[in-house]
Amino acid sequence: MNILHWIYGVLSFLGHDIGYALAYIIESIILLIFVSVMLIFMIYLFRKYMARVQQRIGPNRVGKFGSLQLIADALKLMGKEIIFPKERDDLPYKVAPYIVFFGLILAFAFLPYGNLSIFGNLTITYSDVSIIFIFAILAIMPIGEVLAGIGSHNKYALMGALRSVAKDVSFEVPMMLSVLAIVMMASARTPTSLSLESIVTTEILPYGILEPIGLFVFFIAMIARASYAPFDMGESDSELVSGYSTEYTGMRFALFYIGLFGSIFLGSLLIALLYIGGFNGPFSSQIGFIWLMVKGLILVLISFTIWLSMPRIRIDRLVNAGWKYLLPISFINLVLAGVLTLGLGW
């Protein structure tokens, strides 16, 4: 029983074909709404958390405790004049924000969300190779950043794009290697070891306990991929004004902004699923979804705290850190995972 069947159950009077087609559409809309609401909540949470940590009040004008502030901001950004730079490359400039945004939304479709009381399983799309899907989709987002950087014909934007490519390339490999360790361990227990769902359901202990090195590497790589401080050199405001999004205004800028917060949320959910048990927990057959969200939000708060307390790393040191430290560490992690799986039979 999952949400698709649940919707189909409501629409079953339309017949099998039309019913399922409608159910898929409604499911996609639900996903879009869910992700948008979550992202708005995330940005609200970030602003409120940042304000309180910095001994300020934070947004408190629109709505109760400023909870509608983000909607007001979005409306404001939509109403703003869209300024196009004169010498832009038209198509890449205009397409780039949408690539970032829809790349992000798409990735959410493949996450297993666990159960929530009467709705049953909330997972949108089932796939036996969802890990590969998600990482393939994640690789789309940097393309949007590069297109934005090159398309807007601005030196700051160009440098920002180059930086974020260097960062993404150097952290992609350790990230994949640490995931590979998990897939390896899961393959001992399930035939569909590339499916996130079966990785989570068949685990005995959370993988983060078995391989803390992998958790560490993945966490750092996730923050780097989401371009959060200390790895936010792509849009480092004190050096490159705003990096690849320098020339963007209005709604297109908002899409980049959402992409920034969305990727940290996606990364946190991924860590929660892969390393700290995802929707497993007490009463997980009833409230697995809530477990996932709670774990994800705790991770998000941790990365917010890192953002707020860390200066920015210089780009050459960052690339060094990626290739010279994280990569060897993730290889060690891989070997350890092999020993755990084959030698000890965990």
């Binding site: 940042m50 940590v53 910095q54 001994q55 300020r56 401080a229 200390p230 936010d232 480092s236 405001d237 004190s238 953002w307 707020l308 307390s309 860390m310 200066p311 920015r312």
Partner: peptide, 16 residues
């Protein structure tokens, strides 16, 4: 100086 290096929070503590 913290802001120059990308560190947001100490700025507010200093100003407080």
């Amino acid at each position: 100086y913290g802001l120059d290096l990308g560190m947001l929070t100490p700025f507010f503590y200093c100003f407080a």
